[in-house]
Computed example of a mutant assay.
Amino acid sequence: MARFTRNGTTKILWVDTIADPTYMPTATELSGATDYTKQIAAVDGFSIENQEIETPDMASTFVSKIPGNDSAADSSLTFYEDDVTDTIETDLAKGTVGFVVICRKGKAPSTKGMDVFPVRVASNSPAITADNEAAKITVKFSIIDRPLLNATVPTGS
């Protein structure tokens, strides 16, 4: 098994629209995406969690479980704030709808590991601190539908 680090490999993109109802982007849609990888300081969430259901019975003191509903984890991207432009503040303003595309193993065509999250921006908030660190903005996302997980990056993107 070959191991790798996410830093320098994983790509995080913003796509305004994806025509396919299963959220599989075309090469053209991916080529037109905004690549935010270099501006991102932290990633939280962007995963599916299952809310298991307990199923106790009178025959045992062990409480078994069955899979329940799936839901999305609270998800956010923390960006480095730019003191010249306000791209993050305008492109990812509260209420903006689009797609966060995470190419976990890189964006090379035919690479597996592309996750597509249909989202709405829930908040866009600068972190104000007196600490000795770079200025940051946290954008929180509501995942509005079941994401496409572990897809293959389309050829030509």
Rank of each mutant, 00 (worst) to 15 (best):
M1S: 10
T5D: 08
R6D: 11
T9R: 13
K11E: 11
I12E: 03
I12R: 08
L13P: 08
V15S: 11
T17C: 01
T17L: 04
I18H: 01
A19V: 15
D20R: 12
T28G: 03
E29D: 10
E29P: 08
L30E: 12
S31Q: 07
G32W: 01
A33G: 04
D35I: 02
D35T: 05
Y36E: 07
K38F: 03
K38M: 07
Q39G: 10
I40T: 02
A42Q: 15
A42M: 13
A42E: 15
A42H: 12
E49H: 04
N50F: 00
E52P: 00
E52R: 09
E54F: 00
T55M: 05
M58Y: 07
S60V: 08
F62G: 00
V63C: 05
V63W: 00
S64C: 03
S64Y: 14
N69R: 09
N69D: 07
S71L: 08
S75C: 09
S75H: 06
S75L: 06
S75I: 04
S76L: 02
Y80D: 07
E81F: 00
D82I: 06
D86L: 05
I88Q: 01
I88N: 03
T90R: 11
T90L: 09
T90Q: 10
D91T: 14
D91P: 01
D91S: 10
G95S: 12
V97P: 04
G98T: 05
F99D: 10
F99G: 07
F99M: 11
F99T: 11
F99H: 14
V101L: 08
P109F: 02
G113E: 11
M114I: 10
V116H: 10
V119T: 06
R120S: 14
A122P: 00
S123M: 00
N124Q: 05
S125T: 15
S125F: 02
A127I: 12
A127Q: 14
I128C: 13
T129E: 08
A130T: 15
E133P: 00
A135D: 13
A135L: 06
K136L: 09
K140E: 10
K140S: 13
F141Y: 09
S142V: 04
I143E: 00
I144H: 07
D145G: 10
R146D: 08
N150G: 03
P154F: 05
P154H: 09
G156C: 12
